[in-house]
Structure formats: C-alpha cells, structure tokens
C-alpha cells in the first residue's frame, strides 16, 4: 500500500509541476462560471432554483469535458512511460505492476477531483453570493453532481489505462482515446436515438433500453444527474429515465463497475506485458 501512495504522490507532484492541475481547474472553473451566469438569466421563467439550472448545464459540460480530460491524462500513463524509458527503471524497483497502476489511478483521480471540486465549487459559491440562500436539497443535488462527475472521470481514467496498456505506441493510444471519447459522448447517443425512432417501440423493450443505457458510462452519468427531480424536468431526460427505471444505486454501481473492470483489465494486460 505504501508503494501505491508513493506513486500517487509522484503523479500529483508531476501534475502540479507540469500545470495539468492548474490548466484543468482553470478550464472547468471558467466554463462553469460562464454557464452559471449565462444560465441564470432565464431562471425566473421556468421556476426552478438557480442551482438546478446550473446542475443541468454543468452536467452537460461534464459529459463532454471530463471524459476528454481523463483520457488525455491517462492514455499516456503506461505506453508513454515505456516509450520514454522511465517505466523500465521504475519496474526494476521493488514495486509490483498493479501497484504502479493503482498509484497512478489514485493520483490522476485526485487531480481530477481537485479540479472538479474547485472549478464547479467556484460556480456554486459565485451563485450563492449573487443569488443569496440556496436550499439544502439543491446543495445535495449539486454535491452528488460533483461526486458523480469525479466518478465519471475515474471511469475514463481506467479506460485510458486499458488503452495505454494494450497498444505499442503513444500515437495509437491517443487515436484510440479520441475514438472512444467520440463514441461515448456523441456517436453512441445519436445511434441509440436513431434506433429508437426507427424502431417505434416495437422490439426495443424497457429491459433492452436499460442495458443499452448502462453500456455507455456517459449515459449512466446523464441518467444519474438529469433523470430525476427538478433537473429531470428541466433537461427533458425524465421521460427516458422513467422508462429506464434504474435507481440511483444501480446507476452508481454501474459507474463503479465501469471503473473497476477496465482498471483490472489494464492491470492484467500490463502484468503480462514484456518490456
């Protein structure tokens, strides 16, 4: 366990040094603040709390941005270190390969958590200052939005490691990472929507739809944050979510599974890899 923490500490140190942490935090904060103030204009008309509007906007932002950032930091983690030759030296030390992966994972998720917490937290604070009191249920929803955003980040960090452990060159890892991002964020939903429209509810049952939604971690995240309560009504996701009938517990479990399976696979592939 100590080795894992040593690696995690080094990843965080490197992230701070090469400005990854700074850049990510600033990017998320800037976008979150922009969305907050642009999005707060219509609140009077829809009768929702200002924070709910922000949750909907930030969730949509997260779906695009957090997987991209996570893949950017993680796709290089194994193959990049191998290409640069630093992995060879590291593995000659008394440390197991799974410890290297776990340490990197903790470090990278810590960087993402810091950026998300600070970036989105800035938006919440700004809103509280300008709009005054925010009720506690909105705060809970906001808090769980941040937590699930971090979880979504963890999913894509793990997927990035799996890509990184499988390929032989950094460029390939980068290409595959972009492909995975496009697939999860854009193509999958368009294809699913197209399928539902064409099908007209004849063959795609509720169960199949559930499975299809769980098969894409960004959809799981979307259902989790936009599927219920005021946010659901605002985002128009409530209709899908009601049909999908997946509780928050099942959705969180799906995200955890989406993290653990690629992470374990990455550790296994990496252990067998010859240097």
């Amino acid at each position: 366990m100590k080795n894992v923490l040593i690696i995690a500490g080094k990843e965080i140190q490197e992230g701070l040094r090469n400005r990854w942490v700074l850049a990510t935090t600033l990017l998320l904060a800037a976008l979150a603040l922009t969305l907050t103030f642009l999005g707060s204009a219509p609140t009077g008309n829809v009768g929702a709390g200002a924070l709910e509007v922000v949750i909907v906007s930030l969730s949509s932002l997260t779906i695009f941005l957090v997987p991209l950032i996570a893949l950017l930091i993680s796709h290089d983690a194994i193959v990049g270190e191998m290409e640069r030759g630093t992995m060879l030296l590291l593995l000659s030390y008394p440390i197991g390969r799974w410890q290297v992966i776990m340490g990197k994972f903790i470090g990278h998720v810590a960087i993402l958590s810091f950026a998300t917490l600070l970036g989105y937290g800035a938006a919440a604070v700004a809103l509280a200052v300008t709009e005054g009191a925010i009720d506690s249920s909105s705060l809970t929803a906001f808090g769980s939005m941040i937590l699930s955003s971090i979880l979504l980040g963890g999913v894509f960090v793990a997927i990035g490691y799996l890509i990184s452990a499988l390929v032989a060159e950094r460029g390939t890892a980068g290409g595959i990472a972009i492909g995975v991002w496009l697939l999860c964020v854009l193509i999958y939903d368009m294809a699913l929507l197209g399928l539902l429209v064409v099908d007209q509810g004849k063959t795609v049952s509720g169960g199949l739809l559930n499975a299809l939604l769980l098969a894409n971690p960004t959809d799981v995240y979307r259902l989790l944050n936009l599927g219920s309560g005021t946010a659901g009504a605002l985002s128009g996701m409530a209709g899908v979510a009601e049909n999908a009938a997946l509780g928050p517990a099942a959705l969180v479990a799906a995200l955890v599974a989406w993290t653990l399976v690629p992470l374990t696979a990455a550790a296994m592939v990496f252990s067998r890899r010859e240097l």
């Binding site: 040094r17 640069r84 030759g85 630093t86 030296l89 000659s92």
Partner: peptide
Amino acid sequence: LPENVSFNMSL
C-alpha cells in the same frame, strides 16, 4: 542503470 536512462523532465 538502464541504457539511455531517462527521468520525468518536470521534477
């Protein structure tokens, strides 16, 4: 000591 030893440049 590996041949062509390399380290993380930012530390």
